[in-house]
Structure formats: C-alpha cells, structure tokens
Design a protein around this nucleic acid. Structure first.
Lengths: 111, 111
DNA sequence: TAACTATATTGCTATATCGGCATATTGTCA
DNA sequence: TGACAATATGCCGATATAGCAATATAGTTA
C-alpha cells in the first residue's frame, strides 16, 4: 500500500530523488545521521563517535547540510549540527525492513 | 513517528543500507523501476520507454536484479523484468514528500 | 545450418568522489 | 596581540562507475 504521487515523475524530479539517495549512499554519512539521532552534537564529538578524521567528518557534514538534511549552528568556536529532516530515519527503517525480509527469505531456503 | 530498529546499527548493517541507497542513486535506475511499476516489461520495451540504449539498460537492470529489487524471467529470447521489492516505491514517496516539504518551505520565504 | 532478433558483455574514456594530509580560518582567552 | 582550540578548505592519488561502441551469446525460424 504505497501512496502514489504523480506518475510518471518528471525527469527533473527523478534526478532530485536520485540525488537524495546519493547523499545517503555513503556509510559515513549514514553514521553521521545516526550520531545526530538523539540530539545536536559538535564536530569534535561526532568525530570521536564515528572514529573518523575531523576533516573528513566536516566534509561529509557539509554535504548533508547542503542537502538540507541537517542544520548548522555555531556557538563560539564550536559548531553544532542537528537533524533537519526526520524522513532520513524513515528511509533507513524502510531499507532495514526490506533487507531483513530479504535475508529471512534467503535463510528460509535452508529450512 | 519512526519505527526504530536496533540503534546504533552495526557497521555492517550501515554498509548494507548505504549500498541500497547507492543502487537507487542513479536517475536511470529510478526510471527503470518506475517503468516496471505497472507490470513486467522486456528489455526492448523498457529501452524505448526510458529513451536510453539497450546495453545501458541491460547493465542497470542487472545491477537492480543483483540488489534484489527486480526479478528476471526469460521467455524464448526475450527477457522480462519485474519488481521484486515494492519498498523502493515507498522510498521514492518518502523522498518526494521530503523534497516537496523543503521546496514549499523555501517558497514560503517569499510570502 | 544460416540469418535474424533479443539481450548481455567487454573494452574504453571521462568524470566524480573518497580519504588523507597539510593548511587556512575563525573564535577564545591570557 | 599571541597562542591555542575548533572547524573548514584545498590538494592529492586512488578508485568507482557512467555511457558509448563494438561484439559476444543465446534463442528462433526458415
């Protein structure tokens, strides 16, 4: 039961949709979004949380921000990022359910 | 109201999720999935429907199939592909809604 | 078997982007 | 102002993948 929008989608709409998926297509960016799930965090703490380097984290946070998925708030010389679009969690959950189904089905092949 | 799975997700789970998004991150693959929305189609018809080349269509169909999103059925010398995972439409709809919200909000900035 | 059709594969070039490193920028505080 | 801390940016080499063109493969039919 999928709520449908206008079909077929315009070419430009398709590109925007694909672009959104592209933003989410890197594990580190999924991790960043996850680390912001329970509230805003600054770059240093995020860097520790996901065990990456600060420049790399900053770079990917910027991409997420430009995509409108997170917000940036500077306070003194520390910068807090926060989730701007809760739908990303919905997307992850839908994918998780799909993957789970798939693996369950596959394991069923062996009784 | 987002149904939560186990958090934080394991590193391997994050990679699988990102991988699923990566499959959906190309406009042509979104188009392919759309063209299969109303039922199975063969490669030639799909190629016409999305105005691409046959080798390119075959390549991307293969990727979608390997990701478990579509199925392949050969009948004679024509091959029919069909949707295997309806969740992709759900994903597109969630993204569409998010994008629509974003643009609505932005247009609101101008009264 | 030969010709034909439908689909898949391979080799290629061009482009995009990742992570790492060095460094620039900006804010704070002594 | 100078030293320091937090964050951002620019450059790099390596890798991935898109689309194209040519060709291979497999099924059909005469």
């Amino acid at each position: 039961m999928v709520k449908q929008n206008k079909w077929p989608l315009a070419k430009e709409a398709v590109e925007l949709i694909a672009g959104r998926f592209k933003v989410l297509s890197e594990p580190i960016r999924i991790q960043l979004l996850q680390s912001l799930h329970d509230g805003p965090m600054n770059v240093t703490d995020i860097t520790r949380a996901i065990a990456s380097t600060q420049p790399n984290v900053s770079k990917h946070l910027k991409m997420l921000q430009e995509a409108g998925l997170i917000t940036r708030r500077q306070q003194g010389n520390t910068v807090y990022y926060a989730i701007a679009d809760q739908s990303v969690y919905k997307l992850c959950d839908v994918v998780c359910a799909s993957l789970k189904d798939k693996f369950t089905e596959q394991s069923g092949l062996f009784g």
